[in-house]
Design a binder for these strands. Structure first.
Lengths: 340, 340
DNA sequence: CATGCGTATGACAACGTTGTCAACTGATGA
DNA sequence: TCATCAGTTGACAACGTTGTCATACGCATG
């Protein structure tokens, strides 16, 4: 296995100095066309490709973008990550993925590790962080984008949606349908704090309209279909007379729906269901699940573009940007105007 | 923003040479306990953390594991990636994720880029590659694990399942149920070649038992619920008298099921359905979707462990390993013994 | 006491790239 | 003719870490 050719080899082959080869290949100014052509031919002939590690060591930052998300098996972040890739395409930036497993302490630990790579940019999920994380972010000299949540106060860029708005949206929908005895089901101790925001604004909007949430159950385990089914049991145990339930996400809602159907409940007449995310499968179940569609791919895409633009223009942090993407309430058959 | 402390700072603080500090922190031998304690205290006091970029430049390889998968929004690889993280935990190895978008040419391009980072290990999906990719892999001096597919001939490590076996498994199930007029639906031009293997062994097993596949439709677009629904239309157009359809994956099957229910078909009496992957939502639809459950998380986990072990022992390539994980056919209500 | 050996520590160079500064070229204008 | 300048090109050092070799020391052996 022969070593990969370096700039030195290219320089020797084209009979110029190393630094000239470097400049020529980077497309800097003050390089004569002849020299550039010569170097490019040499690089081509030798199959040279830049060693980003060496470049990163010399420069202040690498060509890597660190992306921190809770986990991949959650129906939210895969699309975001795909979006980030799309937004970052053609930039030569690589993506280092860090899984933080929810929990801001874990996020802090992972971030500390990742920062050692002097990334060119940072994508975080959510806007709740530990004090130490905040300190590291303040010190970080590059673009930072927080995705999926724009409700927090921060000086960093944000791309996402308003979870407060989402909660209100569904509350209004429930009220419009005429539901009064309403419950809520969440999971993972509301670890992704975004879900808590939705619940709280959901509850507040109900209350503002004279309706008090009858009951809620927050499962300690991560969201999943089966956790949804189990949570449904628990909530119904105490509140068998609920008219409608809002879930922290579609997975929970689908699991609960399945459970309800098994019990012989009629949906939405006996009980109404609504989720959050707008997964494809919402339209596969009968009746279709009412949900709020989130623009996950677009969020990632925009975040990637912000990082890419900042990188391209050579700025450090770049301007702070705040992009709120629209939500859409997609009404399926699991909610309906009562007594219609 | 003060610079991050380096080994030099630690050495100065603890009044030893840089190299001694390096050795002490790396836990090498030939370091006196006193010196080690002194250095560790200094590192602690200064908040030192190793710069992996510099280390990678000096050494032959970085602490990064490159993971190449087609995409994240596909219900297969998110779990694999989570598994890889789990298998890699506590090793200090980071994950650089490369999305190849299916297509082995694109994989080659992404791999070429990624190799510039001198990764400590490689995780690829599938075992079909271009010749140039094969050459790069042969030259790569570290552990390589191919995940999800163990049917190919290769000298690299493989962790996955037999798609040939999966195809046979479902064919046998269909035959046992008594289905004779059988169809197949795939997507993305069978780009993830794994699906083609399943189909072919499915067809062969049928044929071996005297049953010829009546018709198949391969949609050009990537798998999704809606592509499944549309493909169902197309297949039924030509073959309205099918008794059962095997799908390349659950998404397609769920979409088609939804379509069939809309048409008023009774499942499985009018038509039987079966998917592949074993997604949670298979148990949410009515009837539950018959599918083959794949151990996606476990595959990733094992792959991560193989890389981690090789890294820990300081070997280069490590021994070739081949781990075939078991499949489970989970029968739902979408297939049933005919005329029972 | 001389020798040899093993342990502990340090000096130096090297990994490949790039920012800074210096040097060279030829052309312009005084 | 000489100073000036823009346009090119190059030498050097530096990024932070670590492998290799050298050195210093203590101890056991002859």
């Amino acid at each position: 296995m022969q070593k990969r050719p370096t700039l030195k080899d290219v320089a020797a082959y084209s009979q110029v100095s190393i630094i000239s080869a470097s400049r020529a290949l980077r497309g800097l100014e003050n390089v004569s066309p002849e020299l550039r052509a010569k170097v490019e031919a040499a690089a081509d002939a030798l199959g040279y490709s830049r060693n980003p590690i060496a470049g990163s060591l010399r420069g202040q930052s690498s060509d890597l973008v660190v992306v921190l998300v809770p986990a991949m098996t959650n129906n939210v972040f895969p699309a975001v990550v795909d979006g980030i890739y799309a937004g970052l395409s053609q930039t030569g930036l690589g993506v280092v993925l860090g899984l933080t497993g929810y929990g801001i302490e874990s996020e802090e630990r992972v971030l500390r590790n990742m920062l050692a790579w002097s990334p060119a940019g940072l994508v975080l999920s959510g806007s709740e962080h530990t004090d130490d994380t905040e300190a590291m972010l303040a010190e970080f000299d590059g673009p930072i984008v927080e995705v999926m949540d724009i409700d927090g106060e921060t000086e960093r860029s944000q791309v996402g949606l308003s979870h407060l708005e989402a909660g209100r949206m569904m509350a209004d929908h429930f009220l419009k349908c005429g539901y009064r005895r309403i419950g809520y089901i969440g999971a993972w101790g509301e670890q992704p704090l975004r879900s808590r925001k939705r619940r709280i604004s959901f509850e507040e909007e109900l209350r503002r309209n004279g309706v008090e949430l009858v009951g809620r159950f927050i499962h300690p385990d991560p969201s999943s279909v089966s956790v949804g089914a189990e949570s449904f049991d628990r909530l119904i145990e105490e509140h068998s007379d609920l008219e409608a339930i809002f879930f922290a996400n579609d997975d929970l809602a689908l699991g609960a729906m399945s459970n309800a159907l098994d019990r012989g409940l009629s949906i939405p007449d006996d009980m109404a269901f609504a989720g959050f995310n707008g997964l494809d499968v919402c339209d596969v179940v009968r009746p279709h699940l009412t949900t709020i569609v989130t623009p996950r791919f677009e969020v990632g895409c925009l975040a990637g573009k912000i990082i890419a633009d900042t990188f391209r223009t050579g700025e450090n942090k770049g301007p702070q940007q705040r992009r709120e993407l629209a939500l859409e309430l997609r009404q399926g058959g699991t909610t309906r105007l009562r007594n219609a």
